Computed example of a mutant assay.
Amino acid sequence: MFIGITGNKKLSIIGEDERQISYTSNDIVHIIQNRDASPIIIPIGSPTNAREYINRVDGLLVTGGQDVSAHLYGEKEVQMDSDSCYQRDLFEIALIREAYRQNKPILAICRGMQIVNVAFGGTLYQELDAPDATVIHRQKFDLTQVSHSVTINPTSELFQILNQTSQLQVNSYHHQAVKDLATPFKASAWASDGTIEAFEAIESRINIIGIQWHPEFLLQTEPLMNNIFTDFIANVQKYKLYLEESEVI
């Protein structure tokens, strides 16, 4: 069972030269490996190659990173020096739409949740940070610690995944967030200031969950976070078995 993980790129010093490298967090890689699945890191590439990548994996995990370009949802950038990567945006939108077309499960984290929303026609708040904010969404301390609470929708799939937990303490490291939620989704968690902290597909046949916080860093301090990944892998396995049985029939 193969899980595609969206990669990022950055400059790194190799010898005496500065080179671009492709990477993803080892925390995510180890989480997938520890659940008897094989992670496949998908480097940023051309949208035309999205179908080929998705054909080769059984599920897609969309990771965090840069801002999503506001041009993709019809707005001008609030900050001219916005940290975004248009190439990554377009490539990941293509991956997400192809995974949706093939009905392969998607788990989206932080920026991943935001780009999934944009991929289906939603919009984002470009800047949440404010001096009088009641919730600090970009914490200044270690992400293995929690910074605020979220309320879980009791009718949501996430509520069931988290053992019917209605309040959860989470970490937070973002300054953008879902504004207009795309049509295929419903909110499944909120911060106390109303910020959407999680969403999921409305139709049960579509397996897409978006999480605004970083559960991958809280597995030790908040054990319920393990359920998010365990459920994702279980759904991927279920879908894979369904395909195999369909081929036999």
Rank of each mutant, 00 (worst) to 15 (best):
D67P: 12
N226S: 03
I115Q: 08
W190C: 06
Q87S: 13
I13C: 00
H71N: 11
D58W: 02
S69Y: 01
D67Y: 04
D58S: 08
Q220H: 13
I14H: 10
D17V: 10
I206A: 04
T48G: 08
S12R: 13
D36I: 03
S22Y: 12
I93Y: 08
G15T: 07
Y23S: 02
D81S: 06
I206Y: 08
A119F: 07
E157P: 09
S192K: 14
T48Q: 15
V170Y: 05
N8S: 15
N171E: 12
F217I: 03
I196D: 07
Y53F: 13
R101C: 07
L218Y: 05
E16G: 10
A182I: 13
G74L: 08
M1K: 12
L128I: 01
Y53H: 11
S156I: 05
G112M: 02
S84E: 12
T183A: 12
L72A: 05
V68C: 12
R97Y: 06
Q66V: 02
R97T: 02
N153Y: 06
E247T: 09
T230F: 03
S204I: 14
A234V: 00
L11G: 02
N153F: 04
S38R: 15
R111L: 07
E222F: 00
G7T: 07
A189G: 03
Q126H: 05
D58H: 10
R138V: 00
N227Q: 12
N226Y: 01
D17T: 12
I209E: 00
V118W: 00
G121R: 12
I209N: 04
G7S: 11
P105I: 08
G122P: 15
F2D: 04
V150Y: 01
L143C: 08
S188H: 02
L218N: 08
D17K: 15
R97N: 15
T123H: 11
A201F: 00
T155K: 15
Q145C: 10
E222A: 00
R51N: 12
G4E: 09
S46H: 14
L72I: 09
N226P: 11
I93W: 07
A133N: 14
L95N: 08
L60W: 01
E216I: 11
D83Y: 07
S188L: 05
D142C: 11
P223C: 02
R19K: 14
L60T: 08
A37K: 13
F141H: 11
T6D: 11
A191C: 04
K238P: 00
G4A: 10
L168Y: 05
G122K: 13
R97V: 03
L158P: 06
S192E: 14
Q66Y: 09
V150N: 03
I42A: 06
I3G: 03
G65S: 02
Y86L: 15
Q87I: 09
D129S: 11
L61H: 03
S25L: 15
T144G: 05
Q167N: 09
K238S: 10
A182R: 12
H175I: 00
V118P: 09
A119W: 10
I28D: 06
H137F: 06
K238A: 09
P105Q: 10
Y86D: 09
F199R: 00
E244M: 13
V62F: 02
A177S: 15
C110M: 14
Q220W: 03
N171A: 09
V116W: 11
W190R: 03
E245Q: 14
L61G: 01
F185Q: 05
N153R: 06
T195V: 15
S188F: 01
